[in-house]
Design a protein around this nucleic acid. Structure first.
Length: 966
RNA sequence: GGGGCCGUAGCUCAAUUGGGAGAGCGCCGGCUUUGCAAGCCGGAGGUUAGGGGUUCGAAACCCCUCGGCUCCA
């Protein structure tokens, strides 16, 4: 009985003989090439591997299979330039991540060979060619005796072809149910709805060990509609989608016991062992770790190469997790410093013949990995402290099992890996509650929200329109106003809503209208949708936003007058002012992109972008914050290009031609072919479907509002264009002028003056609390410098940014903050002046006014101009001089506040004196409250006019306290 | 996108939970010593990330902003 699923054959090689030098029959690069070449001879177009991280496809984070890049081909959504394709696709799946390294065949990153038919050939050819490729001496030449196949129970057609065409004995054709031989698995009974079909798998049987599934042929021929029975409708155009795991097939051809021993993975495994300082063996803990490191570093290398850096969400998070798992393996093997990055060159070397582009980014990739590694080692160090604390608590309470909940909490908040926790627990003879840990993590997963599954081919109200119209031609590149015909009206936004023939309800705010053609730009590529209006003979429709649904442009808005009917002839009019603002922002975005690459390096590629009316947000790759100087230089560079008034042109040309001309292409971006290329002067060429200016001069002005981090390795710039930029620039100048006037200094010297002012504030505060007085040299007003030289706008911005940083406020809040700061300094100076006038405060002076209660020296006095800290110091001095003493001082602050501090000497405390109890009734007499410790208490009140009354209370209270207790 | 944690001296961290901002290391000066993390004495160094609020009183409690860490999807 052949092994049906690789999930079962995890540890078979544990029993196989010790690793021996393998016989190389066919190299990995050779198989890859042969496969593609073979299907080329069968009329297939060789298609390059799609990117690993397809940002164009919201339904997946990583390319999970060879067919992914052909989804739209299968669904007939795109124009087919070919109906047969073959590819070798790099893929990444994390579903079986826990098995990586432990089993012979699991990977996260792997390559998938495939051949595809889009409504062209079907089962017969697919099966015959598969057999030919596998067994023909000219190709793989596998002994047919070593191969068996499986087919779906009800798939007579496939069974027939295997038996009759190929001539396989019946015993070699196994019939399996929908759980095994259907795609998606169990689709007929359990769904999901949509495209599906039976499949047929080919198994290889080695001399020893379990058999291996090396090729899966999927025959997509049905559309599932609801639950059985009769729920599988034949598709008008049937497709073929096959997948042959490259590593796995090579492993069988090379006769090695695990994929990790094939010719292009073994060198990485060996390198990992060397870096980790262990001897690699097949069946050992260290061996498993080396294989896991190999897999994960390969995955990380490809991901980082595509500018997906380890981060906090989505695909970035997956990369981070992969990287950390590998690093943790190294840590468990005793490493304490970054090591993974050293393996990057080995990955590149192994993969370069198929992916030569890797060699261009090796250094950057290694450095990104190294940095993240260093971070994680830091996290581990911090985690060790926390773990020690947990152990300490457990020792105190005599517990021996690490609670899963505690481990989960430590993991969730501080990233302390549970494996590490467990290992350390074992060293302390403590056990670890994995079950509780898993439970707690599941709870956390639920609390963090569920994922919304997007079902392939889900139906909405616009789908019938999509079939009828296919697409809405966009006229907006040439015009902002056009005649059109209403093709569809939908009220409401939920998928349950349906098309209606006409609408007269003016109250609906979310009405969608589709026209046969439109000048409105539907939101896409980061550019917001147009607004405007659609006017018919007897109605008016206000368009608040436009977006794209498939190839349709959907106008979203509200009917403001009359009745709109399907079939009405209308005039579609875009709000041109807003459109112009969007064009300014979009063209400026391209110029900015160019400037960033020029000033920061070519890695500073677009990660995301949003273009609105004279407002743009641009995310890009950069490891560190962009400095103020760089921002300034970039801003000037952008404005220089604006001033140079370069023409903006666009043309539609073949993708290959655009690439040849050096157009900027982004990883993960899916470009149509032919493609629209926007170029500005000779400095910028980008593939872009957005609306642009005719000349860079129309941008008018460009100002950066902010630069900030959005996640590790990604920075975000928000900027303004046109009138918005000019206005902002004016505000900046005004702010600098106003702040300078406040403190009476030259605008160009604002930064140093604010810095001085801050220093002054600190000095005065210190002086006030230490009981000093204003030195004569400081008595005068700050020298005013009325030099009225205006800074240039770019200077003003630099000055303001600098000052804003000093004051920790946003730039435009600087004037307000400077006013407050200035007032505070004046107030401080004022109080110090008062103190100087009132004469010095000293412990001796206060003691001179002390009264004696028994043997105790009691001081109850006003200490005008002192603050709480100074009063404490005076009390300390008195307590040091007189061993039996009680002191209570009061200071009024403004019109509505009194501060009290009371102290009791140590000897008096021993006799029962308590400062807290003393001060309470006094504070109450002032309409306040307070308290403190026996030796020192602090309180306050809000009625200074009752101060003398309160001081009487103080004298009585302390007298009673001393007499009562002693 | 959602959850959790943190931000105190140059560094690592305390602060009896709302009552006087500290320790160790490092730094500077002096003395004593020439042994490997030397000893002793003295000193500087703080807007407790920033802003607002509650309170007689906030490092601590509440809100906002900034920065960092971390998990989940």
């Amino acid at each position: 009985m052949p092994c049906r699923s690789c999930r079962d054959c995890g540890i078979f090689w544990v029993f196989s003989p010790i690793l021996t030098p393998y016989q190389l029959r066919m190299k990995t690069d050779e198989l890859r090439e042969k496969y593609l070449a073979f299907f080329e001879t069968k009329g297939h177009t060789r298609v390059a591997s799609d990117v690993l991280v397809p940002t164009w496809d919201p339904s997946v984070l990583f390319t999970p299979a060879g067919m992914n890049q052909f989804k739209d081909h299968f669904l007939g959504k795109v124009k087919l330039d070919y109906t047969r394709a073959t590819s070798c696709q790099k893929c990444l799946r994390t579903g079986d991540i826990d098995n990586v390294g432990r089993t012979a065949y699991h990977h996260t990153f792997f390559e998938m060979l495939g051949n595809f038919s889009f409504g062209d050939y079907f089962k017969r050819d697919a099966i015959n060619w598969a057999w030919e490729f596998l067994t023909d001496k000219k190709w793989l030449g596998i002994n047919p005796d070593r191969l068996t196949v499986t087919v779906y129970l009800d798939d007579e057609e496939a069974g027939e072809i295997w038996a009759k065409d190929i001539g396989l004995a019946k015993a070699k054709i196994e019939r399996l149910d929908e759980g095994e031989n259907f795609w998606p698995a169990s689709a007929p009974s359990q769904g999901p709805d949509g495209v599906c079909g039976p499949c047929s798998e080919i198994y290889f049987h080695p001399d020893e060990g379990k058999s291996v599934e090396i090729w899966n042929l999927v025959f997509t021929q049905f559309n599932r509609v609801g639950d059985p029975p009769e729920n599988l409708r034949p598709l008008p155009s049937k497709n073929i989608d096959t997948g042959m795991g490259l590593e796995r097939t090579v492993a069988t051809l090379q006769g090695v016991p695990t994929n990790y021993h094939i010719d292009n993975l073994m060198p990485i495994v060996q390198a990992a062992a060397e870096v980790c300082g262990v001897k690699y063996t097949l069946d050992s803990d260290a061996g498993r770790r080396c294989r896991r490191i190999t897999d994960h570093v390969r995955a990380c290398t490809f991901a980082v190469h595509e500018n997906v850096y380890p981060g906090a969400n989505k695909e970035k998070y997956v990369v981070k997790r992969l990287l950390r798992r590998a690093v943790l393996d190294g840590h468990q093997l005793g490493l304490r410093d970054p090591f993974l990055f050293k393996l990057v060159p080995f990955v590149v070397e192994a993969m370069r013949s198929a992916y030569p582009e890797l060699t261009e980014t090796t250094e950057r990739v290694a450095s990104v990995i190294q940095q993240e590694e260093a971070n994680f080692f830091g996290t581990i160090d911090a985690g060790l402290n926390r773990i020690d604390r947990v152990f300490e608590d457990m020792r105190k309470e005599n517990r021996v099992k690490v609670e899963g909940g505690v481990a989960a909490e430590l993991y969730q908040t501080f990233g302390v890996p549970p494996e590490l926790f467990e290992a350390l627990a074992a060293e302390h003879n403590l056990t670890f509650d994995w079950e509780g840990y898993t439970r707690a993590m599941e709870l956390h997963g639920e609390a963090s929200g569920k994922v919304q599954h997007t079902v392939m081919g889900a139906k909405g109200p616009l789908d019938s329109l999509k079939h009828a119209l296919h697409s809405t031609p966009f006229l907006g590149y040439e015009t902002t106003e056009a005649a059109a015909v209403v093709k569809g009206i939908v009220v409401g936004e939920s998928p349950d809503d349906h098309l209606c023939d006409q609408l007269d309800d003016l109250s609906h705010k979310a009405v969608r209208v589709v026209l046969d053609q439109s000048p409105f730009y539907g939101e896409s590529g980061g550019q917001v949708g147009d607004s405007g209006k659609i006017i018919g003979k007897d109605f008016e429709f206000q368009v608040s936003d436009s977006h794209k649904d498939g190839q349709l442009i959907v106008h979203l808005g509200q009917l403001t007058k009359g009745v709109i009917r399907e079939g009405d002839a209308v005039q579609a009019i875009v709000d041109t002012d807003r459109r112009q603002g969007i064009r300014r922002a979009h063209s400026a975005t391209h110029i900015l992109h160019h400037a960033l690459q020029k000033h920061l390096g070519t890695h500073a590629q677009q990660q995301g972008s949003k273009v609105d009316c004279d407002w743009l947000r641009f995310d890009f790759t950069n490891l560190s914050p962009v400095t103020a100087e760089q921002i300034s230089a970039i801003t000037q560079d952008v404005n220089k290009h604006v001033d140079e008034a370069k023409p903006v042109k666009w043309e539609t040309l073949p993708l290959a031609e655009a690439r040849k001309q050096g157009a900027m292409m982004l990883f993960g971006e899916k470009y149509p072919d032919p493609v629209r290329m926007v170029s500005m002067g000779s400095f910028s060429k980008e593939l872009c479907g957005g609306t642009h200016l005719d000349n860079t001069a129309e941008v008018e002005a460009f100002e950066v509002l902010s630069e900030e981090g959005v996640s590790a390795g990604t920075r975000r710039i928000v900027a303004l264009t046109g009138p918005q930029a000019t206005q902002y620039s004016d505000q900046v100048c005004t702010a600098v002028r106003s702040a300078s006037e406040t403190i009476g200094c030259a605008q160009l010297a604002l930064a140093s003056n604010v810095s001085d002012l801050l220093e002054k504030q600190r000095d005065l505060k210190k002086l006030l609390t230490s009981g000093g007085v204003l030195p004569n040299s400081d008595a005068g007003e700050m020298a005013t410098n009325l030099s009225s030289e205006e800074p240039k706008p770019s200077q003003a911005k630099e000055i303001l940014t600098q000052v804003a940083k000093m004051l920790s406020v946003s730039p435009l809040a600087v004037p307000e903050r400077v006013v407050a700061l200035n007032e505070e300094v004046l107030a401080l100076r004022d109080r110090l002046a008062q103190r100087a006038a009132a004469g010095p405060l000293s412990a001796d002076a206060l003691l001179a006014e002390a009264t004696k209660v028994g043997d105790v020296q009691v001081v109850v006095a006003e200490a005008p101009t002192a603050d709480a800290n100074l009063m404490r110091q005076l009390i300390d001095q008195i307590r040091q001089k007189v061993s039996l003493s009680a002191v209570l001082l009061a200071a009024t602050e403004g019109d509505d506040k009194v501060t009290l501090v009371a102290g009791i000497s140590k000897d008096l405390q021993a006799l029962g004196g308590h400062a807290g109890n003393w001060i309470k009734p006094v504070a109450q007499a002032l309409g306040g409250g307070g308290g403190g410790r026996p030796d020192l208490a602090q309180a306050g009140g809000k009625e200074p006019e009752r101060l003398s009354e309160a001081l009487e209370v103080a004298r009585h209270t302390i007298a009673n306290m001393i007499e009562g207790k002693s």
